[in-house]
Computed example of a mutant assay.
Amino acid sequence: MSLGVEPTSGTGLVDSFGRVHTDLRISLTDRCSLRCTYCMPEQGNVWLTRSSIMSADEIAHVARVAADLGVTSFRLTGGEPLLRVDLAEIVSRVAALRSGGAPVEVTLTTNGIGLASRIDELVAAGLSRVNISIDTVRADRFLSLTKRDRLADVLEGIGAAAASSLRPLKLNAVAMRGVNDDELVDLVELAVAHDAEMRFIEQMPLDAGHQWDRSTMLTRDEILAVLGERWSLAPVPGRGDAPAERFVLDTGPHTVGVIASVTAPFCSACNRLRLTADGQVRSCLFATDELDLLQSLRDETLPEADRDVAVETVLRRSVGAKLAGHAINDPLFLQPVRGMNAIGG
């Protein structure tokens, strides 16, 4: 079976710009326990069918091939990955892999709801660390933003993560003008109190309703200006391929991060691929094209070795076609059809 590109045995996932891809983001579901206004509407969502969602076996299969190709870090995302009842099994099977002779890293991005009751099994399964999303510390505002009265549950999840061995612990917030821009300092103080790093994310055009408005986005420079009124900020050297610029607060040891995908893109150092919950490979969060892995994985007429080759070929094709950047700031930029919940963070 040929997909147009013959895999090159023994080489990693390197694109035409020399970027080596060592990070695979795997979405486990498009469903979520919240309805954040910048992500999906409260009602009227069209969900992936249960039969189209990748199984634990299929996820482990793709991860094994990716690890053989040099992927060293796997981030499990959604939607909300804690909605998967087999999450601990998936963590365990991926964490058992090795890449280049070394154990891989398995991390989780979550809204934290239900994390407290599952964190022990996830740590035991081999989870390395966790990122928890929280955009406000005000209960009324949380309800307005997410359409769910669950702030206490998120805070419980943060507390459980802080009490666990998962480090570094990171909290993520989308910074929005006129929404939570008066809480930036409060959010950092919440993170510091839990020995975590707060990371502010510029709002990106990834909402399912395609209502993104650049004027409502709080920029990197504005975020840093607000934080600079409270703390001195010293850049942390050696960013590498990390999406966040990090700054030491005063004399440390705590830090804060800013992910400025819109005003200060970091595409030239991107090392990430994405796998959607229904088995589509995306070379970029903002890609308008996807490549299907699921058909090959479910082709029972193919021996496992041939399915390995098919998976490798799709991964290489995706990397080979990757563009230099996402072009958000180009007048001809097209927002992806899928929303963030269906792509995976």
Rank of each mutant, 00 (worst) to 15 (best):
Leu76Arg: 00
Ala66Ile: 02
Leu315Met: 10
Thr107Glu: 08
Gly126Thr: 09
Pro81His: 03
Phe74Val: 00
Leu302Asn: 04
Asn172Asp: 07
Val262Arg: 04
Arg150Thr: 15
Pro41Phe: 09
Gly79Gln: 10
Lys322Asn: 03
Gly178Asn: 08
Val337Lys: 11
Leu87Arg: 02
Arg19Tyr: 02
Ala96Asp: 14
Val226Lys: 04
Leu28Trp: 03
Leu224Lys: 01
Gly100Tyr: 01
Ile119Phe: 06
Thr146Asp: 02
Ile158His: 05
Pro243Ala: 06
Val65Gly: 04
Ser164Thr: 10
His21Pro: 10
Glu156Asn: 11
Ile343Gln: 07
Leu332His: 15
Gly345Gln: 10
Asn329Arg: 11
Ser133Thr: 13
Arg177Cys: 12
Pro243Cys: 04
Val123Thr: 12
Leu145Pro: 02
Gly157Trp: 05
Asp213Phe: 05
Cys284Asp: 00
Gly228Asn: 09
Gly345Ser: 12
Leu184Thr: 01
Gly345Ala: 14
Ala305His: 13
Arg31Tyr: 03
Leu143Lys: 14
Val62Phe: 06
Ala242Trp: 03
Leu218Lys: 13
Gly257Ser: 08
Gly79Lys: 02
Gly209Asp: 15
Arg316Val: 06
Glu290Pro: 08
Ala124Lys: 13
Ser51Met: 10
His210Gly: 10
Asn341Val: 14
Arg246Thr: 14
Glu156Ser: 13
Gly344Pro: 05
Val71Met: 06
Asp299Asn: 15
Arg282Ile: 13
Thr49Cys: 08
Leu145Glu: 01
Ser215His: 13
Gly178Pro: 11
Tyr38Val: 05
Gly339Val: 01
Ala116Gln: 13
Ala321Met: 14
Glu42Phe: 06
Arg129Ala: 14
Ser144Cys: 06
Trp231Pro: 08
Gly114Thr: 12
Thr216His: 14
Thr301Ser: 14
Gly228Ala: 10
Leu48Ser: 08
His61Leu: 15
Arg84Ser: 03
Leu249Trp: 08
Ala321Glu: 14
Leu187Phe: 04
Asp241Ile: 04
Arg177Tyr: 05
Gly157Lys: 03
Arg338Cys: 04
Asp182Lys: 07
Val85Gly: 08
Ala152Val: 15
Ile134Phe: 06
Asp86Gly: 05
Asp241Leu: 03
Arg199Tyr: 11
Pro336Gln: 06
Ala324Cys: 00
Ile119Arg: 02
Leu294Tyr: 08
Arg64Glu: 11
Pro41Met: 10
Asn111Phe: 11
Ser268Ala: 13
Ala287His: 02
Asn45Gly: 07
Thr49Val: 05
Val185Tyr: 02
Ile53Gln: 09
Arg150His: 15
Leu224Ile: 00
Arg93Leu: 10
Val179Asp: 07
Asp120Phe: 07
Ala191Trp: 04
Ser318Tyr: 07
Ala269Cys: 09
Ala287Arg: 00
Asp86Thr: 02
Asp221His: 03
